[in-house]
Every structure is written in structure tokens, then in C-alpha cells.
């Protein structure tokens, strides 16, 4: 699928599109939009393959290719992610950018592509952003603080199916950052609450539930904004994580605060 194919017969099915892409040489460089015409885009291509095609074209022209993050290209790693026509991951609900197909656009479409933006998601280059603030939140959740020995039998701890299902819904979060990108407040509530819920709902997660909640919320708040319940994150999330988890986090945070207060030594540390 080299760009040279475009010189040959273009089948009816192939699309001509125009993309407007944010180009920025480095974290502190001045960025700007740049237009590119692509005339041989197969509707079967994923959005990332379309960008690959663009980059091949730029390579051939001796220009700098567009930097963008990607890894699995099957919607599980959370690397890919960009604003496509003003929506994180593009117009298709419940899909990551890598799962978005060009057939979702009409031929002749003019697509605007911009990196995710938030103060704590600085731009590395072009469409690639530094989402390591998410790692800080995960780290602050801690791990287990006790030696675990060998893996226990899987069925040793009974878990009701409903609990397992909801916990699994939360665990689907791939950490892509679309929720922050979508949020007018640059809040990371959906991500943090999903990470909290998938542990806090499980029996194994109870031991450190309250400390984890306070620590992760605290770290979240040192990098991100505050939720005003727009629900924009839920709509943008490629895994359709529900804002119900945000309510759970809010409830757990208040409970955790009350519990900590009862621990002597925490009142006046």
C-alpha cells in the first residue's frame, strides 16, 4: 500500500480527504495547524493507517512526519488518542482512534486533528502528549504492602457475579486520557475513579481501600481540575466507562476522610 498506488487506477471506493493537523516541533515550540491533501485513502484503513499514509507521503517529500502515539492498534493499550473533529478518538462512540475506520468519514471530508490538551498533558511533539501524570496517580494508589507468597487458588475468595462484573467494567479503562481531554475542566475523575473502583469493589481491595482512595484523589487533584459533572468524559471514553464510578469515588473519599479521622495521630500529624 505505497502512496504510488494513487497514480494507478483509483477505485471508486477510495477517498479523497483533507486533513488539518497540529504540528509542533517540541514541548516549548510554537505550534500551528497545517493542511494536507490525501487522495487515495481506502475506507478500510484505520485512522492510524491513514496517518501512516500521510507520513509516507511526507517522508517522500522530505518533510518531517507527524508524530503520534500508538502501540497495540487494537484498542487495548491506550497509547493512541487525539482530538478528531473536536472529539477525543473521533466521532465513533466507544472506540479508540486505532479502531476508528476511514469509512466513518465521507469522501471529500475535511478532518481536523489536534493533540489532547490539558495543563498536565504537555505536548511532546505534534499529536504526541506526555500522559505520565496518570502514572503518578497509579503509583500513589500503592501496591500491596504485604508479602503475598504463592498465588492463592483462584476460587478461594468468593466474589458475587454482580460485583465482579461491575469491577470488570471499571477495569476496562485503558488509561488513554480521553476523559481528561474531553473535560472542559481538565479533570481526571473518570480515569481515577475507574482505577479506584476496580480495586475498591473487590474483596481483595478492601484492606487498603480508604488510604488508596485518599492518596489517589490527592494526587489526581495536584495535576488535574475538578469535576463539574458535565458527563463529557463518559461520552468520549473508548471503553464507555460510566460516571457512576465518579459518584462511587466521591462517596468513598468522604467515607475515607471520616475513617482516617478516627485513627489517633492522624488528626494532628
Amino acid at each position: 500500500m505505497s502512496p504510488a498506488n494513487g497514480d494507478a487506477q483509483t477505485t471508486n471506493a477510495n477517498m479523497k480527504i483533507k486533513v488539518t493537523v497540529w504540528r509542533q516541533a517540541g514541548p516549548n515550540a510554537q505550534g500551528a495547524f497545517k493542511d494536507y491533501d490525501l487522495d487515495d485513502i481506502s475506507p478500510e484503513m484505520s485512522f492510524l493507517e491513514m496517518l501512516d499514509t500521510l507520513n509516507e507521503m511526507l517522508n517522500d517529500r522530505g518533510e518531517e512526519p507527524v508524530a503520534f502515539d500508538h502501540d497495540c492498534r487494537e484498542g487495548i493499550c491506550g497509547s493512541c488518542g487525539m482530538m478528531i473533529d473536536g472529539v477525543p478518538h473521533g466521532p465513533e462512540r466507544g472506540t479508540a482512534t486505532c479502531q476508528l475506520h476511514m469509512r466513518k468519514f465521507s469522501s471529500g471530508a475535511h478532518i481536523k486533528i489536534e493533540p489532547f490538551r490539558a495543563s498536565s498533558f504537555p505536548i511532546n511533539k505534534d499529536l504526541s502528549v506526555d500522559r505520565s501524570a496518570f502514572d503518578r496517580i497509579i503509583e500513589s494508589g500503592g501496591y500491596i504492602s504485604a508479602p503475598t507468597g504463592t498465588a492463592p487458588d483462584a476460587n478461594l475468595i468468593p466474589i458475587p457475579k454482580g460485583v465482579a462484573d461491575v469491577s470488570m467494567d471499571a477495569a476496562q479503562c485503558i488509561g488513554c486520557g480521553a476523559c481528561v481531554a474531553a473535560c472542559p475542566n481538565g479533570a481526571a475523575q473518570l480515569f481515577t475513579s475507574a482505577k479506584l473502583a476496580h480495586l475498591n469493589l473487590m474483596p481483595q481491595g478492601q484492606a487498603e481501600r480508604w488510604d488508596r482512595t485518599v492518596n489517589m484523589v490527592d494526587t489526581m487533584e495536584s495535576y488535574f481540575g475538578s469535576c463539574t459533572n458535565h458527563g463529557e468524559c463518559e461520552a468520549a471514553c473508548p471503553k464507555e466507562i460510566s460516571i457512576d464510578f465518579i459518584a462511587l469515588m466521591n462517596k468513598d473519599f468522604v467515607k475515607a476522610q471520616l475513617k482516617q479521622r478516627r485513627l489517633a495521630g492522624q488528626l494532628f500529624p
Binding site: R117, A118, P184, H230
Partner: peptide, 28 residues
């Protein structure tokens, strides 16, 4: 104070038009 926090958390806004999916006039 929360509005100030939120301004800090989104210091640079999108340069192309946003297409809101869920946020409504009342919430914004």
C-alpha cells in the same frame, strides 16, 4: 476556587472547535 483550579488545569485550550457530546448549555 474550583473555577480557578479548573482554569489552571486547562491553561491552553483547543485551537480547533470542540464538539461537545454531553455537556449542555446549563452545565457550561
Amino acid at each position: 476556587t474550583l473555577t480557578q483550579t479548573n482554569r489552571k488545569a486547562r491553561s491552553k485550550n483547543y485551537q480547533s472547535p470542540r464538539d461537545y457530546l454531553a455537556a449542555n448549555y446549563a452545565s457550561r
